[in-house]
Amino acid sequence: MTTETKPRLVRVTEVPPCGTLPATRRPDERAPWIVRPEGIRGLWWIFGAILTACVLAELLVHLHPHFGVDGWFGFHAWFGFLSCVAMVLVAKGLGLLLKRKDTYYDARR
């Protein structure tokens, strides 16, 4: 994760449909624990424990694979992971080709 030096503050210039500008962060505001570094570290540990548990849980249930390959140990775990990596990389590659500034269409009337 990147660490930020300056806290971000998005400027809202147009009045939103509700009629009033949204409030902004007060300088003395305390960050909730889930965004503090120790909280995030804790969440990763919990997440890791859940991931391990749900792979191990496979030993307790009776799988009924249809195709053979889906009976391999932890198939859905690594298949899900790898297909997501593949999709992100494909999207990235396609992005190199097809991404444009979001004013692309406005610029040409």
């Binding site: 991931l51 198939f75 859905h76 298949f79 899900g80 992971f81």
Partner: peptide, 13 residues
């Protein structure tokens, strides 16, 4: 179990 594996590991990704 299989659905949770599929989803949680895509979350990891």
């Amino acid at each position: 179990v299989t659905q949770l594996q599929l989803l949680l590991f895509s979350g990891l990704a």
